[in-house]
Nucleic acid binder design. Structure first.
Lengths: 320, 320
DNA sequence: GCCTTTGGTGAATATTTGCCCATACAATAG
DNA sequence: CTATTGTATGGGCAAATATTCACCAAAGGC
């Protein structure tokens, strides 16, 4: 039954989509749209901008910009990557996620187009959330989306940056949320949790993913782990003192990209990071704050693919 | 970032792509782009529009409506329509009227919103009845609703699919029921009936309607004309044998959309179909059974507007 | 060498768009 | 039933964008 779509809310979005189509695809002026839709020009304008702000219209740039290709080549060589995509950056907004999100979404789409059932594993974070928002609505029931870590805190509340559910909903695929909190109370509890069959199954899926997309978490006061309340500031300071440089799906690693042997990591419930780089593991990260963490992850071969922007690429290459 | 200008050729498109990126993805103004690229504002504008005209930027609408509008565009081109609306269809219920009824109601409302008095002419049928049911209650005393055909059988009983009365009641407009039965007993009686002043007046109104909404009737056993008892099954078989393909307000036409020269049509009392397409005549039809009738009507330019759903649109386009 | 063509530029100008505000309308609470 | 509050609307205006024009510089033909 499609009736449900015809609520007032949806009608408004429909109009927004229609206006956006007339504007961007058919090249109508807002005045013409207003006439065709029998609304005032101002309303037409609002509809168009609604279509934009609701992300109904997606703009994609189809030209390999020379500078970006050059940077991608250099980054690939320097860090021994299998995949690297550099998008232009706006000098005034070097942390803008939209660009990398689009690039990552394109890469996801490439996998989703496959006829065979694929497994896609996702971490969490703002970058991945933005990526999923750039995905078109598809119907790919053969593919499976697996979460690499929980999105619950120990008290049961959820963090907002889980991308798995949104993605599975968008592309119509089966999805496997990670059935554990991010952190266990202690290593023994973790052992018990990991022994569950559902958990073992999900971990197994995550480890054989055809494409793994992860964000990069920095350390320090603004660290996602701190902001989202998994680590107290004092604890974070101790971790940093112990050499913590960054984090991928909550696994904290040092400046060489080696996962730390510490109390925190012994409580992390996430799927273990893939050891060898036989799987495609792509990091999505922008923003100066994440540079040390990203540098370490690349150096330690924790990932073998990267999607970032010019600003970050230049800094990565300039370093050392 | 105005780094590397390498070869003239690549740089131009590169800049265009970069300008387009800054404009559409990063949301810069052309002035800002001009500064960042160290060119004049006009050049920045040229670069952006170059990016557009070179199809470097691809805009996509992520809403079901996008597909609908594409289909509408194709159907419009194919059949030379002035108006075409395609609504999403429920794959499980391709004949569901709700969607098109809402779309048609929206179109009616658009006309009803007008300050000037409008004339709206209606045919009959389930689709139109459903359409009227989707109309909100309004108060539009300036508009006039005209019926294009009778709803009485020769014996005086009424068919249930008359939309005029319900619509006039809903929107508070003046209405003109068609003061004749659907069929006259013979051509001579029809001549007498048509000579009445009230009839001539109503016909005149119907012919100058600002918007005409009609359903499409198929032929065969399930034809509205048969189901509603205007045509016996045997007579229908004869009509089909003579080429009858569909009917609009009881005027039966052939596969090319030409009104048949037959006994039946000589007894039809309905308002004549508009010859030239200078009025907006919109057909509302869904359901596979109606496809041949609709195809013929479109091919013969009996209507210049169409409201249907994706399923029908796709079939119309796939045919021939 | 000179002229023409092509493609690009900035200035001026026309058009379009984005934003603020006063108002109207509808839902909700009292 | 009325007051209130939140939300949508359209007008006006400033900013942004598109277009036109006159001009210039380089490439290529005569």
């Amino acid at each position: 039954m499609t009736q449900g779509r015809f609520t007032a809310e949806t009608t408004r979005l429909d109009d927004a989509a229609r206006a956006g189509w007339l504007y961007y695809v058919a090249g109508n002026t807002q005045d013409e749209i207003a006439r065709k839709l029998s609304v005032s020009r101002q309303t037409a304008q609002r509809l168009v901008s609604l279509a934009v702000s609701e992300r109904l219209v997606k703009v994609r740039l189809d030209h390999p910009i020379g500078r970006c290709m050059d940077l991608a080549g250099m980054v690939t060589d320097r860090f021994g990557l299998q995949f690297c995509e550099i998008v232009p950056s706006d000098p005034d907004a070097p942390g803008l996620l939209t660009g990398v999100a689009i690039a990552a979404a394109v890469e996801l789409e490439r996998v989703l187009k496959s006829d065979e059932g694929r497994i896609i594993a996702l971490g969490t974070g703002r970058a991945l959330k933005a990526t999923v928002e750039q995905l078109p609505r598809l119907d790919c029931p053969r593919h499976r989306i697996v979460s690499l870590l929980g999105n619950m805190m120990s008290d049961g509340s959820a963090t907002p940056y889980n991308a798995t559910i949104a993605m599975a909903e968008r592309v119509g695929a089966k999805h496997y949320p990670y059935p554990l909190p991010v952190l266990a109370s202690d290593p023994d509890e973790l052992k018990v949790l990991h022994a569950q069959e559902a958990v073992r199954n999900t971990i197994g899926l995550g480890q054989q993913a055809d494409l793994t997309l992860v964000g990069i978490g920095q350390m320090g006061r603004q660290a996602p782990l701190v902001v989202d309340g998994f680590v107290a500031e004092a604890e974070m300071a101790a971790l940093v003192a112990a050499g913590a440089t960054g984090e991928i799906t909550s696994w904290i690693y040092d400046g060489d990209g080696h996962v730390l042997d510490c109390d925190f990591n012994r409580r992390v419930a996430s799927v273990p990071l893939p050891k060898a780089a036989e799987r495609r593991v792509i990091a999505v990260a922008v923003g100066e704050a994440k540079r040390p963490a990203l540098t370490a992850a690349l150096g330690g071969r924790l990932v073998n693919g990267l999607i970032t922007n010019e600003a970050m690429a230049e800094r990565l290459l300039a370093a050392k």
